[in-house]
């Protein structure tokens, strides 16, 4: 039978549970990312990312995270991965390449880890 660990959100290691705190903080960043579903907005982001970020009122930390493609910082500042990945799509990245960068490994190492069965629980 599946056992119940009875943990709270903040006790889960290496995990930034996307709750109300983060959704409030991340609202401008995620709203900007959602706009990238629209071809005209994809063009606008690519031609002038600073103006695009200004339009959505990103915080200084969020802007710097987007500029440097610091994916972990985006997550820490309220970005949701499904939305942040739309920025990765602009760069031609796969989700796996984004996750490798987020965890500070090479894409090849991350791919190898997944092929070996992924990051094991508590590992």
């Amino acid at each position: 039978m599946v056992e119940k660990p009875n943990m709270s959100f903040d006790q889960i290691p290496g995990t930034y549970v996307f709750d109300g705190r983060r959704s409030r903080m991340g609202y401008p960043l995620n709203k900007m990312s959602a706009a990238l579903n629209n071809p005209a907005d994809r063009e606008a982001f690519q031609s002038d990312p600073e103006a695009f970020m200004e339009r959505y009122g990103l915080s200084d930390e969020q802007r710097e995270a987007v500029r440097t493609r610091d994916w972990l910082s985006m997550i820490k500042h309220g970005g949701n991965i499904y939305f942040a990945y739309k920025i990765g799509v602009m760069d031609g990245l796969t989700v796996q390449q984004v996750l490798a960068a987020m965890t500070g490994t090479s894409a090849e190492e991350f791919k190898q880890m997944m092929s070996n069965g992924g990051r094991q629980p508590n590992g």
Binding site: I12, P13, G14, T15, Y16, L72, I75, I81, Y82, Y85, V95, L99, M102, T103, F110, M113, M114, G117, G118, R119, Q120, P121
Partner: peptide
């Protein structure tokens, strides 16, 4: 797909 634990299986 997020955080330092990304890749968890």
């Amino acid at each position: 797909l997020q955080g330092e634990r990304a890749g968890h299986i």
